[in-house]
Design a protein around this nucleic acid. Structure first.
Lengths: 240, 240
DNA sequence: TTCTCACGTCAATGACGTTGTCGTAAGGTG
DNA sequence: CACCTTACGACAACGTCATTGACGTGAGAA
């Protein structure tokens, strides 16, 4: 087959499919996201994607080298959606909080895709824009570059890690998901106080807390610790 | 077929396989871990597992309901290995740090398995022991129960989230992994200072930092923020 | 010694990603 | 307007996957 995939700019994009659809990378990415949102992660197969597009499955390979290539495109699309419309306010802590929650939210909206995409570095447009924005917030806040980079790294990986973790929970097949949920009521709710005193003492609190995401609280902890490392915390800037 | 899986206690476990191996749940879990460690995540298929065991693939279904059931067993085994030999020292911050790093380390040792297992709640022995231990550390440190549960949640999910994220990087096929690594040198190293001032200013720092795990630093931030929320931080305990 | 059933093996099913080949119609060219 | 090229959609096929039902055999109970 040699090279099937034609770079986007020099596409002539003719010939609609039998069902009258004109394909494009963008359309395929959007359809993949919709598919995965409607029918779960296991629905994202090339064959089903083809069916959803109204095209032969192999047509997808005219636009993406393979499924991994498609996945990276989906990942970057998610990052882009998270950033869409965001503007810095000048309050670094509020800005980071907003970015973090946006990332988390965007990934939760497409759990099945998030699960596959959160672990990848795409190096594509939307990702680059996000990196630039976050570093900008930290450096403008007054963090020296080495500290800004460390916090950037912790912040981003924390956000993506939680996004993937929480996405995984949402993405489980209903049966396994119910089982995971039940565990906190069942297995942990029944442990005796003499063998497991700490679980027994906190079981209702645990069952309630574990059904929410731990991310917002973890994010606050990170922001708080970062703030305490900011040079001259709250002090006036030095006179010239 | 009805019920193929016989509960472990009432097994009579006769008949070695053609190749003379006597199967057991434990042997299968260990073989799965070894397989995945040697040949990557994609090596963990029932067929290959059968081959590695010296048995017909379908024999695995005599011990595990399906691959998900096997996966949970593998996950719990990882948690068990992380905890193995751990004892509390009485210094809550050192104890949590040690537990966090152990979890991270155990998962990194089996990236392919970690990737699949980190997102699951098993509710099995090793996991229960770990939950009890962590809650014990926090409550003994003096955190009130609701705060202890919130911190427990943030701590565990952050550890597992990073473990999965870092495992994913290690687990990528060599080609994709090299590509991911390159991105920080190539895509981010080449951006112009006028369009991407913050990336340009920190590119070498970024390239250096992103090849390490962000977890240890993120863990310190979490511990630091938690410490600042401890009632009577550093003060003497009240007299009776 | 006999009986039984646990469990290893075999064969089959349907879905998966991916590729080689082919035909055709869209677009450029004159 | 007719011709040619070639992009690209369709088809068919390959090998691998998880999973299951049927089978038969040998270990252990009696």
């Amino acid at each position: 087959m040699a090279e099937r995939v034609v770079p986007e700019p020099q596409r002539r994009r003719r010939r609609p499919t039998k069902q009258g659809v004109v394909l494009s990378r963008q359309l395929i990415v959007e359809t993949a996201l919709r598919l995965v949102g409607q029918h779960g992660a296991e629905a994202l197969t090339v064959r089903r994607l083809g069916a959803a597009l109204g095209a032969d499955p192999s047509a997808v390979y005219r636009y993406f080298r393979n499924t991994d290539d498609l996945l990276l495109a989906v990942a970057d699309e998610l990052v882009g959606r998270a950033q869409h419309g965001w503007r810095p306010t000048g309050d670094w802590r509020a800005d980071l909080r907003e970015i973090g929650l946006r990332i988390h939210r965007a990934y939760q909206a497409h759990p099945q895709a998030a699960l596959l995409a959160a672990h990848r570095t795409t190096g594509r447009t939307h990702e680059i824009r996000a990196v630039e924005a976050i570093l900008g917030v930290l450096r403008a806040a007054g963090f020296p570059d080495p500290e800004a980079v460390r916090i950037y790294h912790a912040f981003v990986d924390q956000s993506l890690g939680f996004a993937a973790l929480d996405a995984a929970a949402l993405a489980l097949p209903p049966a396994a998901r119910a089982a995971d949920d039940e565990v906190w009521q069942a297995a942990y709710g029944r442990l005796a106080a003499d063998t497991h005193p700490n679980i027994a003492a906190t079981a209702p609190l645990l069952a309630a807390d574990m059904r929410r995401s731990g991310y917002p609280y973890a994010l606050e902890l990170l922001l708080e610790a970062a703030a305490s490392r900011l040079p001259r915390p709250g002090g006036r800037p030095p006179r010239p």
